[in-house]
Amino acid sequence: MSKILIADDAQFIRLRLSKLLISNGYEIVEAKDGEEAVQVYREIRPDIVLMDMAMPRKNGMVALHEIRSFDPQAKVIMLTALGQQAIILRAVQAGAKDFLVKPYDVERLLKALKKALGTS
């Protein structure tokens, strides 16, 4: 079972994503800010990270950089309401595997996860 780390400061988003992904056969771990996301990543090495951009303590971009420098193979998908070209470009340059804009389309999200996991 693939393990997904959901890093988002919004309890509502963590709950909604968890419900969706558990019902699709994924195992879930959660982090409520960027710092916790980095820490959890180091401890459990999830298969994929779903990372919000705007988070307290460490934002998603900083967390992405830290995770990728610890594990250059880390698969991080950015999931944010900020779907702006300049922001997407920076995330992709920093090594994000994919970039999804909220409100996310369920099919598109599941497809992105399968693609990143190489199971599509």
Partner: peptide, 26 residues
Amino acid sequence: SALSEMGNLVLSSFLNAIAEFTHDPL
């Protein structure tokens, strides 16, 4: 949390459309 996220989403979407014009992040 759900209502706050709704606020975040509405304003972010508004800013995303403006940013298409400015090309700088908002």
